[in-house]
């Protein structure tokens, strides 16, 4: 595992979460444990969230990877949809990875399903294919300045990953691979189609946590084409990103 722990990122950063903070991880199903490890590596405290009453105590929230259909059923059954939408509107940082990104998206395709609808993107589920098309790729360089802190390549672990097909006007690309958006930001909300918690790289999480109310950097990178771009889907399943599988 690359020694890419930029643990000082959030604590020493200029964002609002500079001291130890309480980061909730939605723990209905999925890889919430891996997220807890990442949060603790940054020196923050993680809390498993299964009930709406826990939300007010949190400084930030992670929606982990897993099965979005399963999580969605729980959110509806347990009355968590509106409390989570309210949390997302509160300006506190939220990171959604893979299934979590699907939950955040305004529009979900492949097939269409409900979501929190708080981040203005269209996302396609299982866009690369099934497990055999899962891959480990690398982010385009140079990395976004907000992810700096280490020169190490940013590894993108993609498991039955979704694809971001449309970006709203207020959505900024944080991480791309072959020009495709892999992590995007709108205000304090970040959605990533890869799993930073699977590679143990803390840079994206540190960036999310240093965001919050002050961190809306939309427009900071003028060269990034963010304006309602319609993006093309991968034409062949394995050509989506440079992959360890073929090396």
């Amino acid at each position: 595992m690359a020694a890419s722990d930029t643990g000082s990122g959030a604590r020493a950063g200029t964002g609002r979460l500079s001291a130890e903070c309480i980061v909730g991880v939605l723990a209905l199903q999925g890889d919430f444990e891996a997220h807890e490890r990442l949060i603790e590596r940054l020196g923050h405290r993680s809390v498993r969230v299964r009930r709406a009453v826990q939300l007010p105590d949190l400084d930030a929230l992670v929606l982990p990877g897993g099965e979005s259909t399963t999580m969605l059923l729980f959110l509806e059954r347990e009355g968590l949809m509106q409390p989570l939408r309210d949390f997302c509107a509160s300006g506190r940082p939220v990171l959604g990875t893979c299934a979590g990104a699907i939950l955040l998206a305004r529009t979900v395709e492949g097939p269409r399903q409900d979501s929190l609808g708080v981040l203005d993107i269209t996302i396609r589920r299982n866009a690369y294919g099934r497990q055999l098309q899962s891959f480990v790729g690398h982010a385009d360089t140079p990395l976004h300045p907000d992810l700096a802190g280490s020169d190490a390549a940013l590894e993108l672990v993609c498991i039955r990953a979704p694809l971001i097909e449309r970006l709203g006007p207020d959505v900024e690309v944080l991480v791309s691979a072959d020009g495709r958006p892999m992590a995007v930001r709108q205000g304090a909300l970040v959605a990533s189609t890869f799993h930073p918690e699977m590679s143990g790289d803390t840079r994206l999480l540190a960036c999310v946590l240093s965001g919050g109310a002050t961190g809306n950097a939309a427009g900071k990178v003028a060269a990034t084409p963010t304006h309602a771009a319609t993006l093309t889907a991968p034409s062949a399943s394995t050509s989506a990103a440079p992959s360890e599988r073929t090396s």
């Binding site: 999925g30 890889d31 891996a34 897993g66 099965e67 899962s134 672990v157 699977m198």
Partner: peptide, 12 residues
């Protein structure tokens, strides 16, 4: 990548 999918199934 193989154990990664199993991670996604945890708690389910």
């Amino acid at each position: 990548l193989k154990t990664g999918l199993a991670e996604m199934l945890k708690g389910g």
